[in-house]
């Protein structure tokens, strides 16, 4: 009889541990789905300039599932290397709630949707910032979103729905040094997810045609069921296209074919969640580097390659390991304690 009880306890434990792990992961899954996931990124993310030159960055927003109404964008940078010249709203945010403010090593602006009945969704330009380089760098200097940066969305109460921000890396060469021949994005030209891809508020140098460099797949804000997607696009024939994928930066270069088509199959599986692609290519006609940006989401339901992305993003591996060890302890206890007790008896 006692042996039967011990076996029953063992079976319950064996069933209970996987059930606990499953319910725990479901809980983490629910938390992840509830978690807001808007991202901000600076585009282009890599810039090389000489001392004394000006360049423009776009603060790009990908709202994911959120209905964004307002954002306070605060940028931080090394004031010995860079000076902010101006900051204004991007085409995605029609209202300037607080005028742009420039400081030493800071630039900020608060922008908003036209009203709460037309909140902002999808991807596009939130703000446009012009910088001037002041001194050469030995290693690239960063322009980052300050921790005070805030994105508010309907239905999220006072929660800052911004969960991820991607900085820009700026390399400044001395004015005597020749500029490197590598593609040097000078200005983002494409506002993703909008019907009118040429931003009307961009500086005058943004006159290049978007059709010269495009990302045709995935589509803007698309949720992908694979963590190794194929990225396709168009550029001028036989051009070198530099592709950078964020959040964990992966940079590769590909060459377009005679039709101007290019593609890249992501080799390192991407984590589930929002990502941004930045592509850059030198236009051989105008000798101007053009960039295009696109945001997409990798689903946590990816069927292939269940290695890294099988773990819920907002969960932590430690919890699961702890549960496994506890489960193992009970299994061993269930196996050895009855034997030990039988011997004693």
């Amino acid at each position: 009889m006692k042996k039967f009880v011990f076996i029953l306890v063992g079976i319950i434990m064996l069933l209970g541990i996987p059930a606990t792990v499953f319910l725990s992961s479901r809980n983490q899954e629910l938390r992840k789905k509830a978690a807001p996931a808007t991202t901000l990124s600076l585009s282009p993310s890599v810039v090389t300039k000489k001392v004394g030159e000006e360049f423009t960055l776009e603060a790009m927003i990908n709202t994911a599932d959120n209905q964004v109404v307002a954002s306070e964008i605060q940028l931080a940078f090394d004031p010995t290397k860079l000076e902010a010249i101006s900051i204004t709203n991007g085409i995605k945010f029609p209202l300037i709630l607080v005028s742009g403010t420039i400081g030493s090593g800071t630039a900020s602006i608060s922008v908003g949707a036209a009203n709460t009945t037309t909140p902002i969704t999808g991807s596009g330009t939130a703000a446009i910032i012009t910088f001037k380089t002041l001194a050469a760098t030995t290693t690239p200097t960063s322009i980052t979103f300050a921790p005070e940066t805030f994105v508010g969305a309907l239905g999220e109460s006072a929660t800052n729905v911004l969960v991820n921000s991607i900085p820009a890396k700026i390399t400044i060469t001395s004015s005597a040094t020749a500029e490197t021949p590598t593609p040097t994005p000078t200005l983002s030209l494409q506002t993703t997810g909008t019907a009118t891809p040429t931003p009307t508020l961009a500086s005058s140098s943004a006159s290049a045609s978007v059709s010269a460099l495009q990302i045709t797949a995935p589509s803007s804000s698309q949720t992908l069921l694979t963590d190794q997607p194929t990225i396709r696009g168009k550029a001028t024939p036989n051009a070198t296209v530099t592709i950078t994928i964020y959040s964990e930066p992966q940079t590769v270069t590909v060459v377009t074919d005679a039709n101007g088509d290019w593609k890249y199959v992501v080799s390192d599986p991407l984590e589930a969640g929002p990502h941004t692609i930045v592509v850059a290519a030198l236009d051989p006609i105008t000798n101007v580097t053009k960039t295009a940006t696109l945001a997409f989401v990798v689903s946590d339901q990816t069927g292939n390659n269940a290695t890294g992305s099988a773990m819920p993003i907002s969960g932590v591996v430690e919890n699961t390991l702890a549960l496994l060890f506890i489960g193992l302890f009970f299994i061993l206890a269930g196996a050895f304690i009855p034997t030990f007790m039988t011997i004693r008896l």
């Binding site: 109404v69 709630l97 607080v98 608060s110 036209a114 009203n115 969305a153 309907l154 109460s157």
Partner: peptide, 19 residues
């Protein structure tokens, strides 16, 4: 201008009021 900054700062956590 300071007043404008202040009221937006106060209202940012209230998405239905900030606009």
């Amino acid at each position: 201008a300071t007043d404008q900054r202040n009221i937006i700062d106060w209202l940012l956590p209230y998405p239905t009021y900030v606009l």
